[in-house]
Amino acid sequence: MRKTTEEMYSPHFSKQEMQRSGMAIRLGIENQPGREEEENLRQLCLNVLEPLRMRFGRIIITSGYRSNALNKAIGGTFNSQHMRGEAADIHIPNEAIGRRYYLFIKHTLVFDQLLFEHRMRNGCMWLHVSFRQPPHHNRGEAMEMTI
């Protein structure tokens, strides 16, 4: 069944996908974006996630919107762009695919922040990408981080 446009931020990214959180479910934390955060999520999907999907096929979002309570519960930074609906974390199945995603975004798309993150303890990798809609300026800041 095709989702209605009210349930979608863009052709391939749903509201549910961009606010889903296993941690929020486990802890009983409400994780609903407001109107401004929803528009930010829509712009992130249209300007960054859709072009990435069109180039590489299906991508998996592991974290999109986070309420303040959820952000605190997972130990997110106090000023996380996830809380404003401006950021998403993308699952990276392996380093080669992660590099292709990273380079495509870095050299092709407008973005605010792009982080290729590696967790040394378990080898987990993900891309954090953010987008700010006008009048905000997108910094185009890209870096690799090991945590």
Rank of each mutant, 00 (worst) to 15 (best):
residue 7 E to M: 10
residue 9 Y to G: 00
residue 47 N to Y: 01
residue 49 L to W: 02
residue 45 C to K: 01
residue 31 N to G: 07
residue 6 E to S: 12
residue 141 E to T: 12
residue 51 P to H: 05
residue 78 F to G: 00
residue 31 N to T: 09
residue 128 H to Y: 15
residue 84 R to N: 11
residue 105 I to T: 02
residue 126 W to M: 07
residue 11 P to I: 04
residue 45 C to H: 04
residue 139 R to A: 14
residue 132 R to K: 15
residue 80 S to V: 03
residue 10 S to W: 00
residue 30 E to K: 06
residue 39 E to H: 12
residue 34 G to R: 05
residue 5 T to C: 08
residue 140 G to V: 06
residue 121 R to A: 13
residue 35 R to H: 08
residue 52 L to R: 01
residue 125 M to P: 03
residue 13 F to K: 01
residue 59 I to Y: 03
residue 2 R to Y: 14
residue 84 R to P: 03
residue 83 M to D: 09
residue 128 H to F: 12
residue 24 A to W: 09
residue 77 T to Q: 06
residue 7 E to T: 06
residue 139 R to Q: 12
residue 40 N to W: 12
residue 132 R to S: 08
residue 50 E to P: 02
residue 60 I to D: 13
residue 137 H to K: 11
residue 134 P to G: 05
residue 55 R to K: 13
residue 12 H to K: 05
residue 100 R to V: 06
residue 12 H to V: 05
residue 121 R to I: 11
residue 99 R to K: 13
residue 74 I to A: 04
residue 9 Y to S: 00
residue 122 N to Y: 08
residue 3 K to F: 15
residue 23 M to W: 11
residue 124 C to V: 13
residue 100 R to H: 08
residue 46 L to K: 11
residue 71 N to W: 02
residue 67 S to V: 09
residue 81 Q to D: 15
residue 2 R to D: 15
residue 41 L to W: 09
residue 96 A to N: 09
residue 84 R to V: 06
residue 37 E to M: 06
residue 126 W to C: 06
residue 59 I to F: 02
residue 101 Y to C: 04
residue 79 N to K: 08
residue 60 I to Y: 10
residue 50 E to R: 05
residue 127 L to G: 03
residue 87 A to L: 07
residue 49 L to A: 07
residue 1 M to C: 14
residue 77 T to M: 05
residue 6 E to M: 09
residue 146 T to C: 10
residue 61 I to W: 05
residue 52 L to C: 03
residue 131 F to K: 00
residue 3 K to W: 15
residue 69 A to K: 11
residue 28 G to V: 07
residue 15 K to I: 12
residue 37 E to G: 04
residue 109 L to S: 04
residue 129 V to E: 02
residue 68 N to Y: 10
residue 42 R to Q: 15
residue 133 Q to V: 07
residue 70 L to C: 01
residue 48 V to D: 00
residue 36 E to D: 11
residue 112 D to F: 03
residue 142 A to W: 02
residue 4 T to N: 14
